[in-house]
Amino acid sequence: MSFSEKNKAMTELLYQLADDDFIHAHRGSEWLGLAPHIEEDVAFSSINQDTMGHAAMYYKLLEDLGEGKADDLSHRRKPEQYRNAIILEERNGSGEYLESPQYDWAFTVIRHFFYDVSKKIRLESLKQSSYEPLSEAARKILTEQYYHLMHWEVWFKQLMTSTAKARKKMEAAIFKVWDDFGGVLTLGPYGDEMVKAGLIEDEEVLKTRFTERMQKYFQSVDFKLVTEPQMKRGDGRAGVHTPDLEHALSTLSEVYVSDAEAAGW
């Protein structure tokens, strides 16, 4: 494959990785001060910081490839230029984060748990990436993934095996996340080129690993799900997004774009 084909595959993959972590960390951080109890608030925030830190590492790799400044890439692109999965941009619940947010903890636990399971599988594959800076980043990020996964696994198992009310909320959240989780597992329109360039393994291979892993978790809490994860609202890797992303980005970039003359913040 030509240099420009390979370069396109590489930047597309890096945007997916960066944008996934960026928007996911943002949704998590909106919980700051509002989690079910104070100790969890503190613990959850560390996970969001780590994840935002991972996004910053990927944006830096894009900067090194000449795509522009990391802060511009994260704060100045148009919504259709983002490559994150749609399920990750979804609001935590109805309401603004400052006014009567009706956040759903079950949805948050499920989305974070599924995401961290898939993220670990993806990182294991990226360790073998032909692009050395990416494989090195993957190795670093993996060191933080163990405790993130442990955190959500504890929440998942406990809420799934507690009261009937909690079980019902958790199952509803599983179905909701499953409907769009295919969007996290896909490599998007340039997936074949990414695989050809040796950047990452085939998405079908990764997807199988994920579903097998999830089946084990489901069995451990006596839950069954026979369908594959879907992509009902479209492919974020292809630039398809919901109004939730646009709304989030206008908040995230409000200050950064407020003064065109500003050299520093």
């Binding site: 951080s29 909106e30 700051l32 001060g33 969001n48 910081q49 935002m52 996004a55 704060h75 200050v255």
Partner: peptide
Amino acid sequence: EWVPKAPTLNRKLAIMAKVQDEM
């Protein structure tokens, strides 16, 4: 209120860490 709006990646990380410390 300023965690998501913090202007840069680095400021976002730092203010998150700071508010977390307050909690």
